[in-house]
Simulated assay, not measured.
Amino acid sequence: MAPQPRLILASTSRYRRELLERLRLPFEVVSPQVDETPLAGESPAALSERLALAKAQAVARLHPQAVVIGSDQVADLDGAPIGKPGDHERATRQLKAMRGHRVVFHTALAVVRSSTGYVGTARVPVDVRFRADLGDEQIESYLRAEQPYDCAGSAKAEGLGIALLDAIHSDDPTALIGLPLIRTCALLRAAGLDPLQA
């Protein structure tokens, strides 16, 4: 039986690392060093796909024998990208803008194995509806409690952020957290690395 190829996560996101650990595969983490600036006129969905592939390809060039996972998430509010807020003031503005609205979180995924020429991609949209009755004091209370300044859209649905929402719709439940594991498993199998045969 041939040895399993190395697995590399091309991301420094602790959320993606924690999700990938659920598959019980040994993996390394390598920062992809990719410019994440949107292109002029680029849609949130296209941005997420381009960045996921760019991250995987950047790391795969350095480690051609490995299977490399790249992923990116961009929130979409009425066609405008919503990124990571970075600080309290921007997070407050984001949550106020999103209350009562449907936001689509586009989580894109790319798996690259340069040694075999394999490149697989997927994008999993997650429809999230924010509560219309969300008051300014509730937003402030949430942000002080969870400080989600490193999360696209300023909300952690896996934590207290669930209280900001009316509904979540997706066919891959971990996509909203940052790595769609159902699609990840499918692309890993196609690349020659089956989590159930490791």
Rank of each mutant, 00 (worst) to 15 (best):
L9F: 15
L9A: 07
L9V: 11
L9N: 06
A10G: 15
A10D: 14
S11L: 05
S11A: 06
S13K: 03
R14I: 08
R14K: 13
Y15G: 01
Y15A: 12
R16D: 10
R16H: 13
R17E: 15
R17C: 13
R17M: 10
R17K: 12
E18S: 08
E18M: 07
E18F: 01
L19T: 00
L19W: 04
L20T: 02
L20I: 08
L20R: 02
L20A: 04
E21F: 05
E21S: 14
E21I: 01
E21T: 07
E21A: 14
E21D: 10
R22H: 10
L23M: 09
L23V: 11
L25M: 15
L25D: 12
L25G: 09
L25P: 15
L25T: 11
P26E: 08
P26Y: 04
P26F: 01
F27Q: 02
E28R: 15
E28N: 10
E28Q: 14
E28L: 11
E28F: 09
V29P: 12
V30A: 07
V30E: 13
S31L: 06
S31H: 11
P32Q: 06
P32G: 04
Q33P: 06
Q33L: 11
Q33N: 10
V34P: 12
D35L: 05
D35T: 05
D35Q: 09
D35R: 07
D35W: 05
D35V: 06
E36R: 03
E36D: 10
E36W: 09
E36A: 01
T37N: 11
L39Y: 13
A40G: 01
G41Q: 03
G41H: 03
G41L: 02
G41W: 02
E42F: 01
S43D: 05
S43P: 03
S43V: 00
P44F: 00
P44Y: 01
A45Q: 14
L47M: 15
L47T: 14
L47P: 14
L47W: 15
S48P: 11
E49T: 05
E49P: 03
E49D: 12
E49G: 04
R50N: 03
R50H: 04
R50C: 00
L51N: 00
A52W: 02
A52M: 05
A52E: 06
L53E: 13
A54Y: 08
A54P: 15
A54I: 04
K55P: 08
K55G: 07
K55E: 09
K55M: 07
Q57E: 14
Q57R: 11
A58M: 04
A58F: 02
V59C: 10
R61W: 14
R61D: 05
R61E: 08
L62V: 02
L62F: 02
